[in-house]
Design a protein around this nucleic acid. Structure first.
Ligand SMILES: [Mn+2]
Ligand SMILES: [Mn+2]
Ligand SMILES: [Zn+2]
Ligand SMILES: [Zn+2]
Lengths: 140, 140
DNA sequence: ACTTTTATGCAATAATGTTGCATGAATAAA
DNA sequence: TTTATTCATGCAACATTATTGCATAAAAGT
């Protein structure tokens, strides 16, 4: 997804092309960490809070964004990869959260281990969050 | 922690013994899945919601409970194990979330794999959430 | 250009999280 | 056992975030 044009992405996900959607999508594409609704509100005061909210909801439904689990109570979002469709999200990828700056990033490349669970559990997918210090924060 | 008496647990964590704290702690001990503030409010209308809120905060600080990451935006809590102290939480354990009933449970016994990350990342701890269907929900 | 469908902004409401403060309860001291 | 001190509680108030309805504006289809 990251290599494509925002307009093409919106079209291919059956979403109308609007200023707000283009802006939000571009912002995600040029940012290397997960974004929250608050982040968007700060950067795009020209759009209503509710519009940004609904943009995030739409992107979730269409499989453009995924929600990233977090224990802060603050929802944040990252771009989905090609495997996601409106029918559902299909991720098994890592997230790294820096406990210093709070930034969360998706790590696509790293191998996600298989987990053996007692057989009464039916496993669908795995979310793995690694907490630590990012390179930017290590010498600060 | 699970085998002990609530009053003893409170005392050993330097918390005064009060009705609310006993009730909340007992509720966690007899429940096999994570609880949210809302769960407590439903079950204990005799206590103010602020008191329940502060009880959760106190338990977090003292290392009796830990917050469980989730992408629902709903904070939930589980009992900590012996490794947690007021100085910090020390978990590397799995959580299982049933996408049907929504219940989250801590899995203490299962092995958490080591993850290899690019060296610019400094790893502190790992949170692993497995989503799927629990045994209760598999034949319903 | 016209029609249909959908997105937007604004207002309003709901839900949740958080703090201050007076009172009451729990522990420590006497 | 009484008294003093420390802390928990309830209530009110406020802050923040999430969510919905509806009239208008904009996008896509014809
Ligand atoms: Mn991700
Ligand atoms: Mn847990
Ligand atoms: Zn950082
Ligand atoms: Zn279930």
């Amino acid at each position: 997804m990251n290599h494509k044009d925002p307009i093409a992405i919106l079209r291919s996900h059956n979403l109308r092309v609007t200023d707000c959607r283009i802006a939000v999508l571009q912002h995600f594409m040029k940012t290397d960490h997960a974004l929250s609704q608050g982040d968007l509100e700060e950067n795009y005061s020209e759009f209503d809070r509710v519009t940004l909210y609904r943009t995030l909801q739409n992107f979730l439904e269409k499989g453009i964004l995924h929600r990233i689990p977090d224990d802060s109570g603050f929802a944040s979002y990252g771009l989905c990869f090609e495997t996601c469709t409106p029918d559902g999200h299909h991720h098994d990828h890592l997230h790294f959260k820096c406990s210093d700056c709070g930034h969360i990033q998706c790590l696509e490349q790293t191998h996600v281990p298989k987990i053996k669970l007692p057989k009464q559990f039916q496993v669908d997918h795995i979310d793995l969050i690694i907490e630590g210090t990012c390179s930017d924060c290590q010498h600060a």
